Amino acid sequence: MSVAEPMPDDVGPWPVDLASDETTTYRTGRERIVDVLRDRVLSGVLPPGTKLNLDALADEFGTSRTPVREACLALSQDGLVRVAQRSGIVVIGLSSEAILENFALMAALSGLAAQWAARGITERELRRVRELHREIKVAAAVGDDIATLNWEFHREINRACHSPRLQRMLAEAGRLIPRRFFELFPEHVPCSLDEHDALVAALGSRDETAARQVAEQHFDSAAALLRRQFAGRSGT
């Protein structure tokens, strides 16, 4: 990683605006509400035109209206909701085409990051990737949440590409990818773990071509799940 261009610790493929080692308490306010509502919008659970009820959301999250409204304002900055004095807060969302385009961008960028990581990953970085890979498999086997571990796994690979510019591009694209993907699509976990196996193997053998192909397929598979969900919602 360039000394002249230090990167924050929060660059990863899905959650990109909070380091994974922050405390749980920090995630119980506005940031957590932003995460959940963003996922619902991006995954189509809250389709365009849905009016958000601040009181109902405050009850759901066990908080006052203030952090919910602040979360909605944050989402409005991403263009996902419209906040108006008379009409209230209405979901704008993204078209299914735009969301799938984001996955295509993430596939391309993550593939490049994995290729560069295979070229320049250090032994220490590789040990950390393997350690996280083992932790994910153990957690998945007992039914524990793997979202955070998955984020850390991909973050380490992205760091190992040693390109601050590419990491910034990943962070920007990742803002519009569902953060809690495995909660939305738990059926994706077995396939995802197989892809992790192949990715770790490619990094270990310094196979740049295989690393890129596997990383791209990782996001292409995720995009296919969303595509089917969108098709089901539209009745096509």
Rank of each mutant, 00 (worst) to 15 (best):
Thr28Leu: 15
Gly29Ser: 08
Gly29Ala: 04
Arg32Met: 12
Ile33His: 05
Val34Glu: 00
Val34Phe: 04
Asp35Trp: 11
Asp35Val: 10
Asp35Gln: 09
Val36Cys: 08
Val36Thr: 15
Arg38Glu: 00
Asp39Met: 00
Arg40Ala: 06
Arg40His: 08
Arg40Tyr: 02
Val41Lys: 04
Val41His: 02
Leu42Gln: 03
Leu42Tyr: 00
Ser43Thr: 13
Ser43Tyr: 03
Gly44Pro: 06
Val45Tyr: 01
Val45Gln: 07
Leu46Phe: 02
Leu46Lys: 02
Pro47Tyr: 03
Pro47Glu: 04
Pro47Ile: 05
Pro48Cys: 03
Pro48Arg: 08
Lys51Thr: 14
Lys51Val: 14
Asn53Cys: 13
Asn53Ala: 13
Asn53Gly: 10
Leu54Lys: 10
Asp55Lys: 14
Ala56Asn: 06
Leu57Lys: 05
Leu57Asp: 04
Ala58Leu: 08
Asp59Ser: 13
Glu60Leu: 09
Glu60His: 10
Phe61Ser: 07
Gly62His: 07
Thr63Asn: 07
Ser64Gln: 12
Ser64Ala: 08
Ser64Ile: 11
Ser64Met: 09
Pro67Val: 11
Arg69Lys: 14
Glu70Pro: 07
Ala71Ser: 07
Cys72Ala: 09
Cys72Asn: 08
Leu73Trp: 11
Ala74Lys: 10
Leu75Ile: 00
Gln77Leu: 11
Asp78Asn: 11
Val81Lys: 03
Val83Trp: 05
Gln85Thr: 15
Arg86Glu: 13
Ser87Asn: 12
Ser87Arg: 15
Ser87Thr: 14
Gly88Ala: 07
Gly88His: 02
Ile89Tyr: 00
Val90Glu: 05
Val91Leu: 02
Val91His: 05
Val91Pro: 01
Val91Ser: 04
Ile92Asp: 11
Ile92Leu: 14
Gly93Asn: 02
Leu94Met: 15
Ser95Ile: 11
Ser95Ala: 14
Ser96Ile: 08
Glu97Ile: 13
Ala98Ile: 08
Asn102Val: 15
Phe103Glu: 00
Phe103Ile: 02
Ala104Cys: 09
Ala104Ile: 05
Ala104Phe: 07
Leu105Gly: 11
Met106Glu: 08
Ala107Lys: 09
Ala107Leu: 04
Ala107Trp: 05
Ala108Leu: 11
Ser110Met: 09
Ser110Gly: 12
Gly111His: 05
Gly111Pro: 05
Gly111Trp: 03
Leu112Glu: 15
Leu112Ser: 12
Ala113His: 06
Ala113Met: 06
Ala113Tyr: 03
Ala113Thr: 07
Ala113Gln: 05
Ala113Ser: 10
Ala114Pro: 11
Ala114Cys: 10
Ala114Glu: 08
Gln115Lys: 11
Gln115Tyr: 05
Gln115His: 08
Gln115Trp: 06
Trp116Asp: 12
Trp116Lys: 14
